[in-house]
Each structure stands twice: as structure tokens, then as C-alpha cells.
């Protein structure tokens, strides 16, 4: 039987089978998006379940920000459908928008307004009226620990606090889905862990579905589930530990003295074990890596310059599924790529 899909375009999907599709917080079906002639998203399918913390992980240019903008209704959908809390973003944009809190990569706060004024402004945009409005603003400021700065102009806040104010803006309307684009970009490590602390508290207190994009592998570990994207396609989607366990055991990375391809071929022949060459390094997934190290070094004493053993990381997951390193420069880049 022939596959329904066009050849050479493998489609992966990420559905939770245990949740009815209609109940998904975000449902993405067959979404394709082009910037001119460049394809940013390619027939993407994805479901995010209510209440989960979901990471869209991918290197720059993988299409994650485009997907974020489509879900946030910032750019018009070209092909496919996206629903947020059962509201179709194409036909019921206002309904979808009312359910989403959005935190952009660059803070969308007004620096000339005070912290409190920024939130009052946001409250009016999301239909909150007095006396609820003032109460909600106060509660949110307290929840995020910036109540003491409420009368300060936003331009006086540090980068970390501005980000926190931006998060406050995002959660003010108590959205069912909180969308964040690279939420910890340009933050120092302390502010970064701070941000995660508050994000977790938001999720615990209100059961909000949190979806964030990131290009940081360690950041994705905060998520319940991760969708790894590459070149506009969904590469794999699962729970972080499951992804890592699927690699099996350990990962050996071998730097060859000479030609890494030749070394890989010889190791493969000698041990009947599948080997890859990634980024000039011979890469091998195996059980009991510590036993493999001496065997390899004894077998090829002059041809191995260095050998490192590690537990599988998300990078290994990425390499396994794409055949290239996470930070390799691919020809595809987003048009408005930002420098980090």
C-alpha cells in the first residue's frame, strides 16, 4: 500500500493519545508557513495537553518562533489549522486571543509607564474592569514579587525585573495558555533561575498550560514534554527522560587522529556496532560505555586522540534524530534572527 503522504516528506506528529483531541489546549494541524520562497514550517502537527509545560526546542532557524507567532495570532496563518482552547485562530481570533497570555522575546512593556500602569494598561486590553482590575494587578505584582516597585517607572528596572514585569503582563488576565518566546534570553543565571521559579509557581497556582520556545538544551529540561524542531519540521516529541532513555546507555565521542570517517568504518567493522560521524567526531551510542573505552583504545591505539563518555543529553537526542549537531549553522535562518 502506498503512503498517502508525498515521498521524501516524512511527517511526524505529536499527539497525546490519552487526551481527546478536542480537549487539547493547543492543537496544530498540518501547518506550513513560508517567508517568500523559504519554508519556515513544513506540515507541522502538534498537540499540547491542558496544564502541561511544553517546550519547543530548536536551533535558530528551526521555525519555533514562527510557530510561536502563529499561535499568538501575531502573523496570519497560511496553511493548516491552529486551535487554542478550541478556538480556531483563523476564524475566532478574538476568542483565541482572550485565552492566551503572550510573553515575547523582547519585553513588550512601556518603559515610560510605571510598573503598575503597565499592568493597568494590559488589564484594559484584556477586558478587566474595576474593581477587579486593581485587585488583580495588586495580586499579580505580589505573586511575582515586584509589588514594592509598583510605583517605579519600568525604565528603572533591571533586565531581570523587566522580564518579570513582562511575565506579570502575560499572566495578568489568567490565561489558560501562557506562551513565551525565549523567556530567559539575555538574562543572567540568577535571573534565569528566578524566572523558572515564578513560571513554576504560576503553573502550580493556576494550572495554566505553559508553552515556551527555547534554543537552550538545558532549559528544555524544565518542560513536561519537549518538541524538538529542526528546519521547520517536528523531529521528535516526548517526555525529556523518555527521549534520553531512548538513546540507551552512554554516548561516546571519539576524536580521531586522522580521518574520522575511516576510523568510524573500522570500528563498525571490528565491533559490529553502528557508528556515526557528527561534526568531525566519531559518535557511538552504547550500553556500558566504561567497558567500551578500553576496548576501543586497545583496538585503535594510534588513531584515537581523545575519547569522552557521557550520559545522553538532549543534544544527543537531537543528534540522533537530525544527524547533525544542535549548533551547526544550517543554511536556513529566520529572517529576523536576533543575535544572542
Amino acid at each position: 500500500m502506498r503512503d498517502e503522504l508525498p515521498a521524501g516528506k516524512p511527517r511526524r506528529a505529536c499527539f497525546r493519545r490519552d487526551v481527546k483531541i478536542s480537549a487539547a489546549a493547543i492543537s496544530i494541524k498540518n501547518v506550513t508557513y513560508d517567508y517568500g520562497t523559504r519554508r519556515a514550517l513544513d506540515a507541522l502537527d502538534l498537540d499540547v495537553a491542558p496544564g502541561e509545560v511544553f517546550a519547543l526546542l530548536g536551533p535558530n532557524g528551526s521555525g519555533k518562533t514562527t510557530l510561536f507567532r502563529l499561535i499568538a495570532t501575531l502573523i496570519p496563518l497560511q496553511q493548516g489549522t491552529i486551535s487554542v482552547c478550541q478556538a480556531n485562530v483563523r476564524h475566532q481570533a478574538a476568542m483565541a486571543r482572550a485565552n492566551i497570555g503572550v510573553v515575547f522575546q523582547s519585553p513588550s512593556i512601556d518603559l515610560k509607564l510605571t510598573v503598575r500602569e503597565n499592568l493597568l494598561c494590559q488589564a484594559s486590553l484584556y477586558g478587566l474592569r474595576e474593581p477587579d482590575r486593581s485587585r488583580r494587578v495588586r495580586e499579580t505584582l505580589e505573586q511575582l514579587g515586584i509589588a514594592d516597585r509598583s510605583q517605579d517607572r519600568a525604565e528603572l528596572l533591571s533586565g531581570g525585573l523587566r522580564r518579570r514585569l513582562d511575565l506579570a503582563r502575560g499572566i495578568l488576565s489568567r490565561p489558560q495558555v501562557l506562551l513565551l518566546d525565549e523567556p530567559t534570553t539575555a538574562l543572567d543565571p540568577a535571573a534565569r533561575s528566578d524566572m523558572w521559579k515564578y513560571l513554576r509557581s504560576v503553573r502550580e497556582q493556576t494550572g495554566t498550560t505553559v508553552v515556551f520556545t527555547t534554543h537552550l538544551l538545558e532549559e528544555a529540561d524544565h518542560a513536561d514534554r519537549i518538541a524538538i524542531m529542526d528546519e521547520g519540521k517536528l523531529v521528535v516529541c516526548d517526555v525529556p527522560d523518555t527521549l534520553k532513555l531512548a538513546i540507551g546507555g552512554d554516548v561516546l565521542s571519539i576524536r580521531a587522529t586522522g580521518d574520522p570517517l575511516a576510523l568510524a568504518r573500522d570500528i563498525e567493522a571490528a565491533f559490529q556496532h553502528s557508528i556515526e560521524v557528527v561534526d568531525q567526531n566519531v559518535r557511538m551510542e552504547c550500553q556500558h560505555g566504561h567497558e567500551w573505552v578500553p576496548r576501543l583504545v586497545q583496538a585503535f591505539p594510534d588513531r584515537i586522540q581523545a575519547i569522552t563518555m557521557s550520559k545522553p543529553t538532549l543534544e544527543d537526542v537531537f543528534v540522533r534524530h537530525t544527524g547533525h549537531r544542535f549548533w551547526v549553522e544550517t543554511p536556513i535562518q529566520t529572517p529576523k534572527r536576533r543575535a544572542h
Binding site: P50, Q86, G127, Q176, C237
Partner: peptide, 30 residues
């Protein structure tokens, strides 16, 4: 096809109902 081992939470599904959404008053916003 990718499989997920996360458990469903009916209470959460109940929460995520778009009927709860309030669309803002355009006059207030303006």
C-alpha cells in the same frame, strides 16, 4: 508516531474551555 507517557488530568481539561473567555471592551481599551 510519537508516544507520550504523561497522564491525563480531567480537571485540567475542564479548565481549558474557551467559553470562559472574556473579550475586552473596545472602548475601555481605546
Amino acid at each position: 508516531m510519537v508516544r507520550s507517557i504523561a497522564t491525563p488530568d480531567p480537571e485540567m481539561s475542564e479548565l481549558h474551555d474557551s467559553r470562559r473567555a472574556v473579550v475586552a471592551s473596545p472602548w475601555d481599551a481605546a
